[in-house]
């Protein structure tokens, strides 16, 4: 999978690339408007991460150009503005998602995963992971053909872990993923334990292996 990171903040771009680079993702960079135009013109990407405020031009123009040329690349806006107008405008033009800075890399990975899955599979969208089969359209999880009765939140968590396979996911990132802006109003994230406990229990009851490991003091990790 090829990903283009259009971001002028080198440190952030490198962090993203470091986190994403594994056997599946290959990252390329564009640091300014011109570079971004060149790269998007000559290459095809599975997902483009686009910062709206770029040296040399408005990021929104790149998005408009891509959509005008009917390029199939998935696109996620990562913006420091967090302005509703920008978000609506971006999504209307054709961005797949909008993520406000600062964000957890795990969150970004989950969004990229979701965008790529949506773009590559149109009619049926099934993720196979160990003995689990997740039907994204029907929002149902099967373990060895048996339905695992997960709640919306538990399914959400499961997908989040799978899209951050072999990565440590902190409680903080989980809380923000589950409740967005509300998470940082609470210093106590105990409610996550309940959901994770339930998820683990249901997976175990469905005779699924224990892939969700607790990393001491930090968070959780899905081993795949």
């Amino acid at each position: 999978m090829k990903i283009l990171i259009i971001e002028d903040e080198v440190e952030l771009a490198e962090s993203i690339a470091t986190y994403l680079t594994d056997e599946n993702y290959r990252c390329e960079f564009a640091m300014d408007y011109q570079q971004a135009l060149q790269k998007t013109e000559f290459h095809q990407y599975d997902c483009i991460l686009l910062d709206l405020m770029l040296p040399g031009g408005d990021g929104m123009k790149i998005l408009e150009k891509l959509k005008a040329e009917n390029k199939a690349d998935g696109l996620i806006i990562i913006s420091a503005k967090n302005s509703l107008d920008d978000k609506i405008k971006g999504l209307q033009i054709g961005a797949d998602d909008y993520l406000a800075k600062p964000f957890h890399l795990q969150e970004l990975a989950a969004r990229i995963y979701s965008v790529i899955r949506r773009r590559h599979f149109t009619n049926s969208n099934i993720i196979e992971e160990h003995e689990l089969k997740i039907d994204l359209l029907a929002k149902t999880v099967y373990a060895k053909e048996e339905v695992v009765p997960l709640t919306k939140k538990e399914l959400n968590l499961l997908l989040y872990f799978i899209s951050n396979k072999n990565r440590v996911v902190s409680k903080n990132a989980l809380a923000e993923h589950l409740s967005g802006d509300l998470a940082d109003m609470m210093d106590n994230h105990d409610f996550i334990y309940a959901h994770i406990k339930n998820l683990k229990r249901k997976l175990t009851e469905a005779d699924c292996g224990n892939y969700l490991k607790t990393v001491y003091g930090t968070g959780y990790k899905w081993e795949g």
Partner: peptide, 23 residues
């Protein structure tokens, strides 16, 4: 808007570095 950009970006950098460190 500028304040948002100027502050959010370094915050995003620190956040991402912490996420990496966890790994």
């Amino acid at each position: 808007e500028n304040a948002a950009h100027e502050l959010q970006t370094p915050l995003a950098v620190v956040q991402s570095k912490l996420d990496l460190m966890e790994q």
